[in-house]
Design a protein around this nucleic acid. Structure first.
Lengths: 184, 184
DNA sequence: CGGAGCATGTAAGCGGTTACATGATTTC
DNA sequence: GAAATCATGTAACCGCTTACATGCTCCG
């Protein structure tokens, strides 16, 4: 039940239309809870029906865009959710699984090595993107507000997570390419 | 579509009954692809029907346990899967979401701090468990076989992942407890 | 005015979770 | 022989993914 709360958070940060939300999910919140536009529209409908958000009546709409904002009940629900407790979600990583499978059936003709390199490139790019975001949003030096410090922590999670991936994938790459050389 | 392949891998490592598989998932493979016994029994049924595994006829069963083993087609399917390509799964972490939400609605009366500490304890315990496994399964010094090196890499992923979590959660704990002190 | 793309949806299907069911074996 | 627990399932639900649908606006 995290998606509705992710949306409430995003709407508190800035009232938005469905499409805007989708874009912002792709750019920031989605790094920790991805969502497609279909999910978002559906969830916006539910949240509106429950009286947690509402469509801003204001200007009769440019095009057909509906802007939503959080109602007091929504803010309350979100505060209650923050205080709740959850088990950490079990990790799910097919690539690690592939390595274990490869231990049983062999690394297949360079395909696995290529896949590892592809993932390494993806995570390297993501790491660079996060670091750029950090430079832009949290230029060091001056004291950060409470909100900024919390948001910075979340971004740091992204950075350190990607550092973990790139570091590990480099190790994997070394071992796999060595094994591929042996088996040829 | 990773669960069937996780099961094939586990069965190649050692033919097992449904319950045994469930236990082994809890202990090792499940760290990278969790599964409940319901999923496993269902999937075993499908795999048997597709002719990728079979119930070992052997001893008419102690109790009612059915042991499964991988058939040649199953091994082939797994090898093909290893060579396949997959996008990395998007991360989903409610705790990071909670921090961002807290930036909007405030850290609530120590509840969030307690949750952070609870997660820190869980990840610390998991880290210790992985390290113990590493000591036991990969005692340094002697040269490792191909299979062992790959399996070691997977375990190292677990270790480094938990190191990431504990490191990050310690940072979070420091910030959150400071904020809670301020707001009281 | 016709085509590109913007913006908001609907529908079907699938994997995973939770709750319940059933028989067989072991333990007291 | 009753209770616990082992072992294998079935059923319902729910969130997420994928594919498709619809109307509107902007631009050449």
């Amino acid at each position: 039940m995290s998606l509705p709360h992710a949306i409430l958070t995003a709407l508190l940060e800035k009232p938005s239309s469905g499409l805007e939300l989708t874009r912002r999910f792709d750019r920031s919140i989605g790094f920790f809870w991805a969502a497609t536009h279909q999910q978002i529209y559906r969830e916006l409908g539910k949240l509106e029906q429950s009286g947690l958000i509402r469509a801003i009546p204001g200007p009769p709409a440019q095009g057909r865009r509906k802007e939503y904002e959080v109602l007091p009940d929504g803010r309350e629900e979100l505060a209650a959710w923050v205080a709740r407790s959850d088990e950490p979600r079990p990790l799910r990583d097919p690539l690690a699984l592939r390595l274990r499978a490869a231990a049983m059936v062999g690394v297949g003709e360079g395909r696995l090595g290529a896949e590892v390199q592809r993932h390494l490139a993806l995570h390297t790019a993501q790491l660079a993107a996060y670091r750029a975001m950090e430079q832009r949003q949290f230029p060091g030096g001056r004291r950060e507000s409470v909100e900024a410090r919390l948001q910075h922590l979340v971004l740091q999670a992204g950075i350190e997570m990607e550092r973990f991936w790139t570091g590990w994938l480099e190790q994997v790459e070394a071992v796999v390419s060595e094994l591929e050389a042996e088996s040829s």
